[in-house]
Design a protein around this nucleic acid. Sequence first.
DNA 1: CACTAGTGATACCA
DNA 2: CCTCGTCACTAGTG
Length: 655
Amino acid sequence: MWIIDSICQDQQNAFDYLHQLGEMEKEAESAVDEELNRWIHKKEELIEKKETLLCSKQNIWSDIHVEEAREDIHELKSAVEFLQSLKLGFQKQVKLSDFTGRTVAIDASCWIHKALAVSISQSGNRQRLADIFRKYLLIVKRAAMTIYIVFDGLLLPAKASEVEQRQSDREERLRKADNASLSSKEANKFRSQAASITFDDISTCIDICLEENVRYVMSPYEADAQITFLLNNGYADMVITEDSDLLAYGCKEVIMKLCLSGEGQHLLLDDILDGLKLNFQQFQNMCIVAGCDYLHNVRGIGIRGAYKIISSGDDMFSTLENKGAPNNYKDHFHETKAVFSHQTVFDVNTLKTVPLHMWESNTSTKTKHLCGKYPLYTLACYVCPCGCRMGVLEVTCNSTPNDSVEDMSPKTNGQEEIKIHIINVEEQPFSYNIPSFPVMSVDLLKVQYTWNGVTHLGVINAKEHSALKVGNYTCTSHCKINIGGVDYLVLWELHCDMATSCSAPIDPPGFNSVFNDEGETNVREVQETHCLPFKVLGTCYSTSRQKALEMAFDCMNEYNRPVFVKLKAEPTNQHDKNAIAVHIMTIDDWDKVGYIASELTKYLHEPLKANALDVTVNEVRFRTTFMLVGYYLTIDITKMGLWDDTVIKASSKVK
DNA sequence: CACTAGTGATACCA
DNA sequence: CCTCGTCACTAGTG
């Protein structure tokens, strides 16, 4: 604008100026060009860098097999769905009590994750984690099963993109949670989705295992491989887990989807193999061909495609190449197979890390590295099978698999009994942080003891043996430990040779005799009755209802004490004059926990008035699906004569 | 038609 | 600083 003005006022000057401007523009242009070139160059650099990164990402897949195996889970779930669709009937609904006396290995991570999600969605913090974890533990204990809890091991460096993706997902959810327009309840739900397991959480759960005298194993890498090892070597008979990938590892007997009522789905690998007419190797191949992360499935090959290829008996690699598999597919396939077969696990007997299955002699060193000999050292914790105390063992692995753990393995078997004489106990405990695992720390006391006439240095758990005196002891659980370059023997479990006091576990309060009989007598005397389950709605409406139901759950499952139910019409209910509320009594008071579905109330009013209904608890169920977390109640309503078909239909339709 | 890949919605009563 | 969802449905493909 101003230039037009000046043209009008002084043409010559203006033209000069325009000329100048033109020169300036030229300069500017070349400057822009330069800048542009710089950026183009930079872009090329970045692309190059990105390619290098991508390349190295492929090369270091050994480090990330934990992440990748996670992908398998997804695919294998569809494998199970597929099996279901074949209607093989391999899956049976069972109760845990059917397995009394068996030894079970449990994948702890699914419980922790579930419990954490519940805790945060309910209260916004992690406080209830311990509570819920213990509940799960107790239902297995109550079935009188021997337990091995298996925790996931050290985290390996994960794929950068994967981690970023997950991180951003989590941040997105947290951002949603901070949205002010949401109620605190909704916000907590978003937070629960963003929650991730921390070392503290694991520590909490380990403490619970110790308190409950439950053996646990810290797996060097994946819990799944560790569990498979326990099963293959007879340390456990069966598995409890949420994931079906245990089947692909070769676990024979799996219980999935265990809920707090003690019910779950029971799977036998042999049934599945029979049904599919495959041997185990073929089954495992099928699972891999159907796709996992670092060995992505060939586009267009899903679970059925994989099944067809495997069951046809043709050479699967040529078939897959025809379908567009990349050249290196075969190599990657074998590497995947190795991770499934030879992943490093912890041998609870020899206290060494070993491959899940022995290596074939001609396996390349490179492939061996892929299965978890990589870290310089790892750690395994266990509770000795004879006693109840924890043993800790530091296992150092060399980076070359061949001379893996020979030097560092303890000379003594941790379960072998030794008779010792303690001659000196230091007064001041010191805290020992277990290397590479930040949360595990124990307070130890240094002691001197003689064994076979030779004096040794040892340590004892300060908490457990605070009042330990000099004298003769039998040690039933011990392991070697190295502190500041000095070897000590950790004496986990000590029995004084003179005293034989043994504190029995405390039984839950015995309500049984008082209540057990009367609840059932009424039902039995009535003949020609018909019992129908009714779902109770609105149980998650308020925390008071949830609290009452939680109490009911504990009464039924922990104390074997009956819970009484009654129906109560609410003619004064503002929304529906026909409303029928459901009340339960646990200890001494009636609590309203929900309502009968509105479409069913009309069938109940008359017999209710006539006092002709008998109402009992069918089940209290704890559910943890997305956005739906809490205790749900189903009641049985029994009446004289048969329920009408319309009622049966309507009742089954509810929710 | 059989199968796969991708997407979106999911919850709380009377 | 820190681990995992699932179902039902649809559009697309060979």
